[in-house]
């Protein structure tokens, strides 16, 4: 299922990326763009599969490559989507890309949300800012397999209305009636019709029951910190809570050394960890 095989001829070149081409660029916010890319190798594109939560290295030769969550769902076979916030050298190069430009991809990498183990459960997804990227893949995947899950709730927070990503998806989720979708912003304006308030506060107002529920959160570290506290207060146990970690990465295959938290490598053992698993790791966030 991986294009970075651990066996066979190609396994000998795990650092060699696949060539891909940008087929769509979506400006999500003033500093976030979504890029849709397609492997140049048609056979590879056809056989490409992954699980929600997995990541990939998107790169521009000459600038380098960086690790991003795959933001499209596994059912999307036409392209692979990455959502990229412009912050450094590589992300700036990615933001300069246009349709038709050549990029490189190494994907999928890392572990994934254990969606198979969540069948029959309610799932509460809590995202903030660019942290929505892996959660978009997850949420769209669960919508694709709607009958396998119980109640689906998504709380998505951003700083201001103009910081909201995935506007088309948000509209769909609001209208579909089959999921409980809440958007909230830190600071409102007169045109904003959604909730106003920090994500943890909105979460506590909603007070979802921990009964048969899984909570998944991804976002800025400070949001995650308070969301985890709120979930704990509401009675969620550590094994019911999942998050994804971020670290500076280079190789993506557990060799270059820098993304470890104690003995675990975020690139190969993560990025998805349950709070229970995190509790067993040394505190090095």
């Amino acid at each position: 299922m991986s294009t970075i095989p651990r066996q066979g001829k190609k396994a000998l070149e795990p650092l060699r990326p696949e060539k891909a081409t940008v087929v769509d660029v979506i400006r999500e916010t003033h500093n976030i763009k979504s890029l849709r890319v397609v492997f140049d190798d048609e056979e590879l594109m056809t056989s490409f599969t992954f699980q929600p939560g997995q990541v990939g290295q998107l790169g521009v030769m000459g600038a380098g490559e960086s690790t991003f969550a795959i933001a499209s769902p596994p059912s999307q076979r036409e392209y692979i989507q990455f959502s990229v916030m412009k912050t450094g050298v590589v992300t700036t190069a990615i933001h300069e890309l246009a349709v038709g430009d050549r990029v490189t991809v190494r994907a999928p990498m890392g572990n994934h949300f254990p969606v198979d183990r969540w069948q029959g459960k309610n799932v509460l997804v809590i995202g903030g800012g660019i942290g929505m990227a892996p959660l978009r893949s997850l949420f769209l995947h669960m919508m694709d397999h709607r009958e396998e899950y119980g109640h689906l709730q998504l709380i998505y927070g951003a700083r201001t209305p103009s910081d909201i990503c995935y506007r088309d998806d948000c509209r769909d989720w609001k209208q579909c009636g089959d999921v409980d979708f809440i958007t909230t912003i830190d600071t409102g304006n007169q045109d904003w019709e959604g909730r106003v308030g920090l994500v943890p506060a909105v979460l506590e107002e909603e007070e979802p029951s921990p009964e048969n529920n899984i909570a998944v959160t991804c976002g800025p570290p400070v949001m995650i910190k308070f969301v985890l506290e709120s979930l704990g207060k509401m009675g969620f146990r550590d094994e019911q809570i999942y998050t994804t970690l971020e670290r500076r990465m280079k190789c993506g295959i557990g060799l270059c050394g820098r993304c470890n938290v104690g003995p675990r490598y975020v690139c190969t053992d993560g990025p998805v960890f349950s709070l229970k698993e995190l509790g067993e790791l040394p505190d090095e966030m």
């Binding site: 650092l15 030769m61 000459g62 600038a63 380098g64 490559e65 280079k250 190789c251 060799l255 270059c256 050394g257 820098r258």
Partner: peptide
């Protein structure tokens, strides 16, 4: 442990390298 980086030899050509970190 190593670092990975790209070095351009012209505006069109370059190399991806790694070095001790």
């Amino acid at each position: 442990c190593f670092d990975m980086y790209d070095e351009m030899s012209s505006s069109r050509d370059g190399e991806r390298c790694r070095s001790w970190d």
